[in-house]
C-alpha cells in the first residue's frame, strides 16, 4: 500500500514538474542593424564612461553642457560639475561597464537616448556595482553633441529593497 502511495506521489510530482515547463518561445532572436543615431550616441556614451574610468576630467567636462543636470530618484538634481567631482574623486573607481538595449530618438534640436548600463564600481571601498536604466538628452553645441540632462535609476533587479520614502518634492 505504501509503495502505491509513494508511486502516486511521484507521478503527481513528475506531472506537475512538466506542467511547469516554459511555453516554447515562438520567435528566435533577431539580429538588428543599429540605427545611425544608436551607433553615434553609443560611441559618445562609451567615450564618457572611458573618461570616468580613466579620470580624464577635461574630456568629461567637454562632453557636458554648462547647465547639465543629473537626476536620480528621491534626490535633488545634481549639477554636472558636482557629478564630475564625484566620479573624479580618488575613492571612486569604475572598474568595468557594458551598455545594452540602446535606442535613440531625434527630436530635431536634441536627441534622447535610452540604454541600460551594467557597471562594476567601488566608492570608498564599498561595492557600488549595479545595473542602471539611463535616459540622456544630448544637445548640439556647435559641431559637438553635449549631454544636457541625465535621468538615471537602478533597475528593479538591483534597486534597494528599502521602502521608498516620500520626500515631499515629487
Amino acid at each position: 500500500m505504501r509503495v502505491h502511495s509513494l508511486l502516486a506521489i511521484f507521478i503527481g510530482i513528475t506531472v506537475s514538474i512538466h506542467a511547469q515547463e516554459p511555453v516554447k518561445p515562438k520567435l528566435n532572436p533577431r539580429i538588428v542593424t543599429a540605427t545611425r543615431l544608436v551607433t553615434q550616441f553609443s560611441d559618445l556614451e562609451l567615450q564618457m564612461l572611458k573618461a570616468v574610468q580613466k579620470k580624464t576630467q577635461p574630456a568629461l567636462q567637454a562632453m557636458l553642457t554648462d547647465d547639465c543636470a543629473i537626476e536620480m530618484p528621491n534626490a535633488d538634481p545634481l549639477p554636472g560639475e558636482d557629478w564630475i567631482d564625484s566620479v573624479m574623486a580618488k575613492d571612486y573607481s569604475l572598474k568595468s561597464f557594458a551598455l545594452r538595449e540602446f535606442s535613440a530618438v531625434d527630436l530635431g534640436t536634441a536627441v534622447v537616448v535610452k540604454f541600460e548600463r551594467r557597471e562594476s564600481a567601488t566608492l570608498k571601498g564599498k561595492n557600488e556595482s549595479g545595473e542602471f536604466f539611463v535616459v540622456d538628452v544630448w544637445k548640439k553645441d556647435g559641431e559637438k553633441w553635449k549631454l544636457a540632462n541625465r535621468f538615471v535609476s537602478r533597475t528593479a533587479a538591483t534597486a534597494s529593497k528599502a521602502p521608498i520614502k516620500p520626500t515631499g518634492k515629487q
Binding site: P25, N28, P29, R30, I31, V32, T33, A34, V38, T39, S42, D43, L46, F97, A98, L99, R100, E101, F102, S103, F115, R118
Partner: peptide, 14 residues
C-alpha cells in the same frame, strides 16, 4: 532558442 542569449556589446547593437 535554447543556448541563444542576447549579450551586450557596449555599442547597443543587436
Amino acid at each position: 532558442g535554447a543556448g541563444v542569449n542576447r549579450a551586450p556589446d557596449g555599442a547597443g547593437h543587436g
